[in-house]
């Protein structure tokens, strides 16, 4: 086996042993000193999102419906099966009419989570890649602040077929250390494909200031082996109602890039209802191609690209949101504007 893979496996082992050591030093059972009535069992749920967006950009219009049901099945006191299936299509209309329609289906995740101890959750199956946080936390259409994901997102927009160890450990001063470490086998399945890869994300969260800083590492182990690094920051400011989020990607093989986004939570102010239900958003981002061209194509831009975007989300109800956005992209020979209007709905049954 490749020596670097061995290192990652060793790293994963260390990660799993540390939490297990912790669990041995504390009172063993019940695992969690529950202060809620445990006789009420959790029930299986179907939840998810439905979204419809339409974008206008230099002579073309694009209609983009997405349906993504999620199934949550609790297993005993320590287990959970969670699965999301996503279906989407893109109808592109230009001067010659509508292009052909193709229904894209993908199994985003189908994982079994087992709470092995206070500090360790074991995950097996298919799960989203914990590289940076966009894929795990912001990708759902009803969560994204802007309809288009960041330019560097295609790198982490993958799911893994394999295993993951994750959890959080309390540190002194109220800080929390979060970790997720994973490996994935290669699969060419059309709906549930994955790369052979391994990696981790670790982060420190400061609850008082609601600030989280993370670091990610990924090693692709397919035909070409290479490393990529990521850093991320999420800060939900408490003094002013502003959410600041940012991610950066550093990869010798795939290029470098970053995005920074700010979103205002006006709901906190005593403003007219229209403004309280609104969320203005701005994002700036850049991507730089690698100095040596690579045969690997993960969907990142082919040339150096910058983009600025601004958007306005309006919460019609707690689960239904209207989205408006404008983005201007600057790239070699391709400067263009994109206007997007959309509706996102989150359901829980």
């Amino acid at each position: 086996m490749n020596r670097r893979l061995l290192l990652l496996v060793r790293y994963s082992l260390v990660l799993s042993i540390v939490p297990l050591m912790y669990s041995q030093t504390t009172v063993p059972r019940p695992i969690e000193n529950a202060t809620y009535d445990e006789s009420v069992p959790p029930i299986p749920l179907v939840t998810g999102g439905i979204s419809f967006t339409t974008s206008f950009e230099s002579g073309t219009q694009d209609l983009h419906p997405v349906v993504s049901p999620i199934f949550l099945i609790p297993i005993g006191r320590r287990g959970l099966i969670e699965s999301e299936f996503e279906m989407q299509t893109e109808a592109i209309h230009d001067s010659s009419g509508f292009g052909p329609l193709h229904l894209d289906k993908s199994l985003e995740y189908a994982q079994f989570d087992y709470f092995a101890s206070k500090y360790l959750t074991i995950v097996a199956g298919r799960f989203p890649t914990p590289f940076g946080f966009y894929k795990e936390r912001l990708d759902a259409r009803w969560i994204r602040n802007l309809p288009d994901p960041p330019l560097i997102f295609p790198f982490s927009d993958t799911s893994n077929n394999g295993g993951m160890l994750r959890g959080a450990i309390p540190l002194k001063g109220g800080f929390q250390l979060g970790y997720s470490t994973y490996f994935s086998a290669m699969s060419n399945n059309e709906v549930a494909g994955s790369d052979r890869q391994a990696g981790f994300r670790s982060s420190v969260f400061v609850p008082k200031t609601r600030l989280e800083v993370g670091f990610s590492f990924n090693r692709k182990l397919g035909d070409e082996h290479f490393n990529s690094f990521g850093s991320d920051l999420a800060w939900n400011l408490t003094r002013i109602p502003l959410d600041v989020r940012s991610e950066a990607l550093f990869s010798h093989t795939l290029g470098n890039g970053y995005w920074v986004e700010g979103a205002w939570r006006l709901a906190r102010y005593s403003l007219p209802k229209f403004l309280r239900n609104s969320q203005p958003v701005v994002r700036g981002e850049q991507y730089f191609t690698p100095s040596e061209t690579s045969a690997i194509d993960v969907g990142l831009p082919g040339v150096n690209t910058s983009r600025v975007s601004a958007g306005w989300n309006y919460y019609l109800t707690n689960s239904l949101r209207a989205q408006f956005s404008y983005g201007r992209q600057f790239a070699q020979d391709d400067n263009h504007n994109t206007w997007t209007v959309g509706l996102n709905y989150r359901f829980i049954m």
Binding site: P42, P74, L80, E82, E136, R137, R166, A168
Partner: peptide, 12 residues
């Protein structure tokens, strides 16, 4: 109960 369990995993 099931949603907070889901979030426990997602949000570490």
């Amino acid at each position: 109960r099931v949603i907070v369990r889901h979030m426990r995993v997602r949000a570490n």
